[in-house]
Computed example of a mutant assay.
Amino acid sequence: MKLIVDAQLPTKLCEILNQLGLESFHVAELPKGDETPDEEITELADRQNLILVTKDFDFYHSHMALGKPKKLFLVTTGNLKNRQLFDLFRNNFLLIKNALNRSNFVELNNEGITEHE
């Protein structure tokens, strides 16, 4: 399982995900970096079987209407300090990993993980 982390989330999140055993990279590493259009991110994610990790509800709407991206991990925590966000990922790591293996749409909120579909 490999993840691509969208621009609204900190690049440091990739380091934490990698430490937890979830291979990931940030859109900032793409040739167009944070300026990469959503459609290109979606195409890349689907072509390379990546799970898109994002806070951007545009990806949610696209996933629900068109099934693109195929695999979506939506972070709906609202504004948190990075440390709080990272702790949510660390504290829910096993739930996240299992949910991503089972579902095409997973949501992380302040209470934990929700699998959709």
Results as ranks from 00 to 15, higher is better:
E43F: 15
E43A: 14
E43I: 13
E43G: 10
E43M: 13
L44N: 11
L44I: 15
L44E: 11
A45E: 09
R47T: 15
R47F: 12
Q48P: 09
Q48D: 14
N49C: 13
N49A: 14
L50E: 12
I51H: 05
L52F: 01
L52T: 02
V53H: 09
T54E: 02
D56T: 04
D56Q: 05
D56W: 03
D56N: 09
D58K: 12
F59H: 03
H61W: 13
S62P: 08
S62I: 08
S62E: 12
H63L: 08
H63E: 08
M64F: 14
M64I: 14
M64V: 15
A65Q: 14
L66I: 10
G67I: 11
K68I: 06
K68V: 07
K68G: 07
P69E: 06
P69S: 10
P69F: 00
K70F: 14
K70H: 15
K70Q: 15
K71W: 09
L72I: 08
L72N: 07
F73D: 08
L74H: 05
L74G: 03
L74Y: 02
L74Q: 01
L74W: 04
V75C: 09
V75E: 07
T76Y: 04
T76A: 11
T76Q: 11
T77F: 10
T77N: 13
G78I: 05
G78S: 08
N79I: 11
K81Y: 12
N82T: 15
N82K: 15
N82Y: 14
R83F: 11
Q84R: 12
L85P: 06
L85F: 06
F86Q: 10
D87K: 12
D87L: 13
D87C: 10
L88S: 04
L88P: 00
F89K: 04
F89L: 04
F89P: 04
R90M: 05
N91V: 04
N92D: 01
F93T: 09
F93G: 02
F93D: 08
F93W: 14
L94P: 01
L94K: 05
L94T: 03
L94A: 01
L94R: 05
L94E: 07
L95Y: 02
L95K: 03
L95G: 01
K97D: 00
K97F: 02
K97T: 00
N98G: 10
A99Y: 02
A99H: 08
L100V: 09
L100K: 05
N101H: 13
N101I: 12
N101P: 11
R102N: 01
R102F: 00
S103L: 09
N104C: 10
N104I: 08
F105W: 02
F105E: 01
F105N: 03
V106Q: 03
V106H: 06
V106L: 07
E107H: 01
E107R: 05
L108A: 01
L108E: 04
L108H: 05
N109S: 10
N109G: 09
N110H: 05
N110E: 02
E111N: 06
G112K: 02
I113S: 00
I113A: 03
I113E: 02
T114Y: 02
T114F: 00
T114H: 04
T114V: 06
T114S: 02
E115I: 07
E115L: 06
H116E: 03
H116M: 05
E117P: 01
E117C: 03
